[in-house]
Design a protein around this nucleic acid. Structure first.
Lengths: 243, 243
DNA sequence: ATCATACGGTCATCCTACAACTTCGGCAAG
DNA sequence: CTTGCCGAAGTTGTAGGATGACCGTATGAT
């Protein structure tokens, strides 16, 4: 009798579902910043779960700085500006417009990443980048290992900047894009474009090896544009990008 | 008898302390990615807390993708690349080197933010930016409202890019910097530099109003450099930044 | 040798109880 | 009427135990 009926069949754990529900309510503006949430008991009743599950859900939101709990008073919604963590809703990326924006952000980060890396990279860094490049070219199939090698290539460049935050941010953004694209790829094979992709990477690597910041940045910018269009995302507003 | 002795005097809640401890152990490499954590009961004993507290701590780490729990098996630490959230350790920012790197990231994001905003901003956007600018100039004291207005200015620009992710990332990075600097400011007053700061903002605003992307980007880049040096952070490696 | 089953370990959830804290109202002293 | 104390009620924080669901492995039958 303990395990209550799941109401809605779902593989997700209860705390995560409660957290997502509350998160959407907050993001959607149903609860304005500064307002108090219902008590844990009320939420437990509302969702049909135990208070314990509600507490775990709130613990997650609290860690993100989305809500703040004060003992003896209640839990309050925080202003969206003072979040202590960035989290990207993967559901939202099904919207083409959001995907475009994420690619634009990636373009900014990676272009500058390549520029910095060209000026700073050591021979060890170059070796790591080259290794990823070789592994990518070695795979004739697009599917499995190729994508991993692709990510490895970009991360190796980010690491070569010597800036840990740049590495973290780029890894994060790329991973979000990868997972969003993963299953969407099944619709269009686009294997024939692998050579184009590899060629773009080679171009970037050459610029890095030559320690030519401008060429590296330019090569990366074009590569991201190309990668975006290859998955059906057009980076509009190319204005003010040139130079 | 229930409330156990806190062992270490701390105002932080128990789950947060446990989560921080585990997080440090993972970041520090004490636990290799893929390895299994001790069971919840063992952790509860180890930290001298109830299993409930351990679960809340793990819930936080799980939300970040730092660990993955499989029912009936155990909890495993994930590779740092596939985190689902970005979180910046504020303690680490006490290290000058990390602060420099964060400023460098901010410089990248904000420079491009200003560039894009110059090309895309509407009159409404400009009004919002101008309002923040006026509010900043209105305050003769540096302390309280001035900093808020400063952040508002930068966020307004980020919003004018029309890219929600850029807004989110910039808000996040700026907030981290602000809170890290907050108390460190007490040592050096530096009130006399307020005019310089405002002047830099005016220069950026003028470029935005003129819809001059290059001037806006350049103005922002210089402003971040100036802001960094004003709090004692020197952005070295200005290489490859010009042009 | 292969497959089905039983078993122990672990996470997931629930429940109750209590401690710590805040808020608010009543009540008495000034 | 104002002020200050104090206790009741409500809320979050923590403890601890019980049970269900799930996984991996060992055991035993075929």
């Amino acid at each position: 009798m303990k395990q209550r009926s799941s109401i809605i069949g779902s593989v997700e754990a209860l705390p995560h579902r409660v957290a997502s529900h509350l998160s959407r309510e907050i993001e959607g503006g149903d609860i304005i910043p500064g307002a108090r949430l219902p008590t844990e008991s009320q939420l437990a009743d509302k969702f049909g779960v135990s208070r314990n599950v509600v507490r775990e859900a709130i613990a997650q939101l609290r860690a993100d700085g989305m809500i703040e709990a004060r003992q003896g008073v209640g839990a309050f919604v925080m202003a969206p500006e003072q979040r202590t963590a960035i989290r990207i809703d993967r559901e939202a990326l099904k919207d083409q417009r959001n995907m475009e924006q994420l690619f634009e952000l990636r373009s900014i980060l990676e272009t500058e990443s390549a520029t910095l890396a060209a000026a700073r990279c050591t021979s060890d860094d170059l070796d790591a980048i080259k290794a990823a490049l070789d592994r990518m070219g070695g795979e004739e199939r697009w599917e499995d290992g190729s994508i991993e090698a692709d990510l490895l290539f970009h991360r190796a460049i980010a690491r070569a900047t010597g800036n840990g935050y740049i590495y973290t941010f780029i890894s994060f953004v790329c991973e979000q894009i990868r997972q969003s694209i993963h299953y969407a790829r099944l619709t269009n094979p686009l294997h024939d474009l692998v050579e184009v992709n590899v060629a773009e990477h080679v171009r970037i690597y050459d610029a890095l090896a030559a320690h030519d910041p401008q060429a590296a940045g330019e090569g990366m910018r074009r590569h991201i544009d190309g990668a975006a269009s290859r998955v059906g995302v057009e980076l509009t507003a190319k204005i003010n990008r040139g130079k």
